[in-house]
């Protein structure tokens, strides 16, 4: 019982992990992308469009192949979320619109996009494609605890963790990461050091968006098993909260996302009343507020958000 609970929590955590790693990268460039929930919705929309286009192209369920289906779906999900990120970048980095407004607008837009494609697409064959995404390591019918906890997930869960680890390493150990952090902390300094602020903002935001978009894909294709659901923006907001919770560290997000998903799924595994259930669902946000309070009391400079987060950068402004 507890094992299954933990297993499903770890699996579900991928949604948060994709979202928060993507948002962390974006925020490290100084872009406070509140459009992440929308971008995750767009990733999901991409997956829906990709899968239904693929099924139509191969002539029905019979023609589906594992590699073809997964690749096409992933590519579409990436393209859709890339488009979301691009909208955000053009608005904030090129046109220098207010980041909060642009982000919130993008979220509203993404939710709409998901409703549109989710409602209109032909979902024939989705369960089959979902089966490919959910394909785990070969474990028997009676897996032991190790196999259950570590080997029983679809590829996207592992990809999420690998991406989080890579993101952490890139941020901490590489020149690209150093430059990116400099752009988010003090764009004028980065600019004077010869770093292209715009390129880094675009790069980080677009890559971050694509990673977040995979979260949407994961939810539709793995978590729900090919059934279109419209709750993705909720998880998007939790992912944004998770970024603060993990004080902008993708490696901590791995554990943080599992914690969030444990808290989120807990009501399904314990018998509680409706009211108690809703209270438990609030806990992740409460914990985030507590973390915010603690980090601001401790006021360690390394635990603070990037100094230029949410600000547009103009070179010739004094």
């Amino acid at each position: 019982m507890f094992l299954t609970f933990l297993q499903s929590a770890i699996r579900f955590s991928a949604v948060f992990l994709f979202g928060s790693v993507g948002e962390t990268l974006t925020e490290k460039s100084g872009n406070l992308n509140l459009g992440i929930p929308g971008i995750m919705c767009m990733g999901a929309s991409g997956a829906i469009v990709g899968a239904s286009t693929y099924v139509a192209a191969v002539g029905g369920v019979g023609g589906i192949t594992a590699w073809g289906a997964t690749l096409v779906t992933i590519i579409f999900a990436l393209l859709f979320s890339l488009l979301g990120g691009l909208i955000y970048c053009v608005l904030t980095a090129t046109l220098r619109c207010n980041q909060n407004v642009s982000g919130l607008a993008l979220t509203t837009f993404g939710v709409g996009v998901l409703s549109f494609f989710g409602g209109s697409a032909d979902t024939t064959g989705f369960t089959v494609i979902s089966g490919f995404f959910r394909q785990s390591f070969p474990i028997g019918d009676n897996p032991n605890w190790f196999e259950t906890l570590f080997l029983s997930y679809g590829c996207l869960v592992y990809i999420a963790i690998i991406i989080a680890v890579i993101a952490a390493i890139v941020l901490k150990k590489t020149r690209v990461g150093l430059n990116l952090r400099a752009v988010g902390e003090n764009p004028a300094t980065a600019d004077a050091a010869g770093i292209s602020v715009t390129n880094y903002k675009y790069g980080a935001t677009l890559i971050g968006s694509m990673i977040a978009g995979l979260g949407g894909l994961f939810y539709i294709m793995d978590q729900t098993g090919g059934v279109v659901e419209y709750t993705i923006d909720t998880y998007g907001w939790m992912a944004v909260a998770l970024v603060i919770f993990t004080v902008w560290r993708p490696n901590w997000a791995i554990l943080g996302s599992i914690l969030f998903s444990i808290l989120y799924l807990l009501p399904n595994y314990v018998s509680v009343s409706f009211a108690e259930r809703e209270v438990i669902k609030m806990i992740p946000y409460l914990v985030t507020i507590v973390v915010l309070v603690i980090t601001s009391i401790v006021s360690r400079r390394e635990s603070q958000p990037p100094a230029a987060l949410g600000l547009s950068y103009f070179r010739e402004e004094r």
């Binding site: 150093l178 400099a182 902390e185 003090n186 004028a188 300094t189 004077a192 050091a193 010869g194």
Partner: peptide, 30 residues
Amino acid sequence: YRYKIGMVHQHFKLVDVFTALDNILLGEEM
């Protein structure tokens, strides 16, 4: 910098949360 000109601005252009060294290495050409 290509023409070997460098400027120390009145308002320092430094990243606060970095070490001095990381600030110095910042933007080094690859």
